[in-house]
């Protein structure tokens, strides 16, 4: 549990934690606003985004990919909103039309373009490559203080850490308007708050989290982390602040347990190969949610129904 852990497990686990927390934070508000599935939609359109970026630049470098994914997320959000308003279609169906269409377009483009010699495929976008984000230069905990070894950290780690810090800072700064407009939009508007801008900003933050995370950890973790930790947290408490706190705890727990179970679980069971860490992180978050559904202190709908 020394050098080998630092070399092969520390960085993937940290990246997993950052990615999970970055998605769980906006997920709290998305769930309360009945927009939980926007994360699902965004994750699906990442694929067409990176394919288009590849077709334009001809490389699979990181930054063009991220820009393509972000652009696609933006296009998707705008299209969903346009279809919802112009066609007077309920949000779920509008989302379903747009993200599946864009995904189909992405798959078609991928088939049509010659990507045989580059590592660009649907599975990669879905599952990421968490297991490969290892820190070969490290030879123990002491490497954390060694500037040469530190300079060989996988670049995904600082990138994901910065993205997570920015999202956390934004959540903190805009806490009051987010809470106010999520709870009572009419009142927020009457106060003069730019409700539509807040709503767009939230979706943009979610998209940024999804885009920053997909490259490292894949879309599965992204979708699961948008929903499962915040949903489980909602069942633990009736205070928004505490809910966000719980969701961060659950996201972190899912990332750590998921990675360890994926890497070492099969060995404990006598198998020789590890299994997908991304899938396992999602599965662990599901187990946490199931436990919260069964035992969470605030799991029941209580009180008097509104209205009448």
């Amino acid at each position: 549990m020394g050098a080998e852990f630092v070399q092969f497990s520390l960085t993937p686990i940290l990246i997993g934690i950052f990615a999970s927390v970055a998605c769980a934070l906006p997920g709290n508000f998305l769930i309360l606003r009945r927009q939980a599935l926007i994360g699902d939609a965004i994750s699906h359109v990442v694929l067409p985004g990176i394919v288009v970026a590849f077709l334009i630049t001809g490389t699979v470098a990181t930054w063009p990919m991220l820009a393509g994914a972000a652009g696609a997320a933006l296009v998707a959000v705008v299209l969903i909103e346009a279809v919802r308003r112009l066609g007077k279609i309920e949000p779920g169906a509008a989302m379903g039309v747009i993200f599946t269409s864009l995904f189909a377009g992405g798959v078609l483009l991928l088939e049509q373009s010659d990507t045989s010699n580059v590592h660009l495929d649907v599975e990669h976008a879905l599952m990421g490559n968490l297991e490969q984000l290892i820190w070969l230069r490290a030879d123990g905990w002491a490497s954390l203080l060694d500037p040469i070894a530190l300079s060989h950290l996988p670049p995904e780690l600082p990138r994901m850490a910065i993205a997570t810090l920015i999202i956390a800072a934004l959540t903190w700064v805009f806490w009051r308007p987010l809470k106010l407009s999520s709870f009572d939009e009419g009142f927020a508007r009457a106060l003069g708050l730019p409700v539509n801008l807040i709503s767009l900003g939230l979706v943009a933050a979610a998209a940024a989290a999804a885009v920053a995370a997909f490259d490292a950890v894949g879309s599965i973790i992204v979708i699961a982390m948008f929903i499962c930790p915040p949903a489980a947290a909602r069942l633990m408490t009736n205070r928004l602040g505490a809910q966000v706190g719980w969701s961060v705890v659950f996201a972190t727990l899912s990332a750590i347990l998921g990675y360890i179970l994926a890497g070492y679980g099969p060995l404990w069971l006598g198998a020789s190969n590890s299994v997908s860490a991304a899938g396992m992180v999602a599965a662990v978050s599901g187990v946490i949610l199931a436990l919260a559904c069964l035992f969470g202190p605030a799991r029941h709908r209580v009180g008097v129904a509104a209205g009448g």
Partner: peptide, 21 residues
């Protein structure tokens, strides 16, 4: 539970898909 349907849908799809992977 008090979770709305969209959250339940998202949870099921991501967790089942993760298990599948």
């Amino acid at each position: 539970t008090r979770l709305p349907e969209d959250a339940a849908i998202g949870a099921v799809l991501s967790v089942f898909f993760g298990l599948g992977v």
